[in-house]
Computed example of a mutant assay.
Amino acid sequence: MKTDHERAFDLFSEDLHRSSVIKNVQFKQITGLPFVYLWPAHQADQSQLEDQLKRSAAKAMKGKRLTLAMSYVRKSQAFYVYRVRFLVPQRKMFCCGNFCDDCIRFT
């Protein structure tokens, strides 16, 4: 069974592959960080690519407690590179019954 994080990344990938603004998408993990390589369609510029990334991420995160961390890395002659991560909340969201100091019941 996949986690919300894994399902969100799958939905994100599917939505980017269907986009008319993007000709090709490739995902790479380098030193544990996810990078997205985007080859734009002929009429697309960088702002359109970033808008598509944000729209696809919003669709993927809908109904889940995730946030987007996206940063532009570099541009080659043919493609753009972005680091895109879905972050999970740092705060505990339920009581495990172990009487932890940072228990959700104490907030």
Score class of each variant (00 low, 15 high):
Phe106Gln: 12
Arg85Val: 05
Leu53Met: 07
Arg65Asp: 13
Gln26Trp: 01
Lys54Ile: 08
Tyr80Thr: 04
Arg18Glu: 12
Phe94Cys: 08
Pro34Asp: 09
Ala69Ser: 15
Glu50Asp: 08
Phe35Asp: 01
Val21Gly: 00
Asp51Phe: 10
Leu87Ala: 11
Gln90Ala: 13
Ser20Lys: 13
Leu11His: 02
Tyr72Arg: 11
Met1Trp: 03
Leu33Ser: 10
Ser20Gly: 04
Arg7Asn: 12
Ile22Asn: 01
Pro89Asp: 05
Met70Gln: 10
Cys100Ser: 11
Pro40Trp: 06
Thr31Trp: 08
Thr107Gly: 03
Thr3Met: 02
Gln29Asn: 12
Lys92Ala: 12
Ile22Val: 10
Gly32Trp: 06
Leu38Glu: 01
Ser76Cys: 04
Cys95Ser: 11
Arg85His: 12
Tyr82Gly: 01
Val73Tyr: 07
Gln48Ala: 15
Cys100Phe: 08
Met70Glu: 12
Pro40Gln: 06
Arg85Gly: 06
Lys75Cys: 10
Cys96Ser: 14
Lys92His: 14
Met1Cys: 05
Asp4Ile: 03
Asp45Gly: 14
Ser20Ala: 11
Tyr82Glu: 02
Tyr72Pro: 12
Leu49Trp: 04
Val84Glu: 00
Asp102Thr: 12
Arg83Asn: 15
Ala60Gly: 03
Tyr37Gly: 00
Leu33Ala: 09
Ala60Tyr: 01
Cys96Thr: 10
Asn24Met: 08
Met93Asn: 07
Tyr37Gln: 08
Thr31Ile: 09
Pro34Ala: 05
Asp51His: 13
Arg65Met: 14
Ser71Phe: 12
Ser56Thr: 01
Lys23Arg: 14
Cys100Ala: 11
Val21Pro: 00
Phe94Tyr: 15
Cys100Asn: 10
Asp4Lys: 02
Ala8Glu: 02
Val73Trp: 05
Phe99Asp: 15
Asp101Gly: 09
Thr107Lys: 15
Lys2Cys: 03
Glu50Gly: 03
Pro40Cys: 06
Glu50Arg: 10
Tyr37Thr: 05
Ser19Thr: 01
Gly63Val: 03
Gly32Asn: 07
Lys62Thr: 06
Thr31His: 14
Cys100Trp: 07
His17Trp: 04
Leu16Asp: 00
Arg7Ser: 05
Phe94Leu: 14
Phe27Ala: 03
Asp45Leu: 08
Lys59Ile: 09
Cys95Tyr: 10
Gly97Lys: 09
Thr3His: 04
Tyr80Ile: 02
Phe94Asp: 05
Ala60Met: 02
Val25Ala: 01
Ile104Thr: 11
Tyr82Met: 05
